[in-house]
Simulated assay, not measured.
Amino acid sequence: MDAYCAEVRKLEKNFQGLEIHHVLRDSNIAADVLAKLGSDRAKVPPGIFVEELTAPSIKQLGNTEKEKETTDPIEIDQAEEPDQSRQIMVIQNDWRQTYIEFVKEKKLPEDKTEATRVVQRSKNYVLVGDKLYKRAASSGVLLKCVLTDKGKEILDEIHSGCCGNHAASRTLVGKAFRTGFYWPTALKDAEELVRTSKNCQMFARQSHMSAHNLICIPLAWPFSCWGLDQVGPLKKAKGGFEYIFVAIDKFTKWIEYKPLVKYSAEKAVEFIQDIMHRFGMPNRIITDLGSPFTAREFQY
């Protein structure tokens, strides 16, 4: 590794700086699998090409006396002693900084849309010393705001740690918030964690129904097939109406409705009789098997 590091230091002189981005393990699965194939000497799957190197791809410094004589000593010193003036930055966006600046100094982003969003959401944030906290909507408890990477580590510990039970995404987020941590992308990160978890996908509920072609409802002529449904309870309107009977003709998409104060099988019979008197006897009526449509009065 020292020899490879020395080669990187030589190439570093040709650039103004370096940026190192941390790639999470879940986002680097392909490289991890390839590394395990090489270390375990496992059988290579089809579609993967292997190149065997019988010698190192770079010159190893200091192995023989000849290499010591032909190697420039100045380059070796530069490789072993990196330039202190060069800095390596690890860039990580801190979502908390925008809210801290607004709560502390009333400083807003230049983008008007972003500034409006910060003003609206900052009402739930509290600054305690230099730490940012968010007030929970239901209980009012202060949740410590953490970085996104730290939040992902918390979710991974809750999901598959020593006390993990491979719960669903919303359950993971609820446990993280109840523990006292908050970050805005918690639900999205939890869904991604569950989706990429091998154990969760293996033991998830699976449909055992055999695949078959879609069975369509044949429509021969207008007003021969109606779909009937009940909607409610809704917000009470004038006259005390809270429910609605809705009927849709499957051919023309014509809609009929009737507002109700209280639904019953007798009201459903009156509604379908009104449709029959106006549009004729239907050939078929499709319902969701609600209680007004399964009662004896409606059936006969």
Results as ranks from 00 to 15, higher is better:
I158P: 01
Q273S: 13
T98P: 07
F102Q: 09
R86D: 06
A190P: 04
L193C: 06
E51Q: 10
I275F: 02
C5T: 10
L289H: 11
P222Q: 07
Y125W: 03
I74R: 03
N124C: 10
T252Y: 01
V119Y: 09
A220F: 14
V126L: 01
A220C: 13
G47T: 04
V118Q: 02
G129P: 12
Q299N: 12
Q84H: 13
P46M: 01
K262S: 05
E69F: 04
G38M: 10
D274P: 11
I58P: 09
F15V: 15
S160T: 03
D288H: 11
I285A: 03
H166R: 08
R284A: 15
N93Q: 11
D72R: 03
R135C: 09
G227A: 01
K198D: 13
K250A: 12
Q201L: 06
E192L: 05
H277L: 08
I88M: 12
T185F: 13
E110K: 00
K262Q: 06
L108G: 05
E65H: 06
K104R: 03
A247N: 04
S207Q: 10
R96K: 15
E101Q: 05
V126D: 04
D94M: 01
I158C: 01
G280F: 08
R9V: 12
F279V: 05
V126C: 05
K104T: 03
K235E: 08
R25G: 15
L18Q: 09
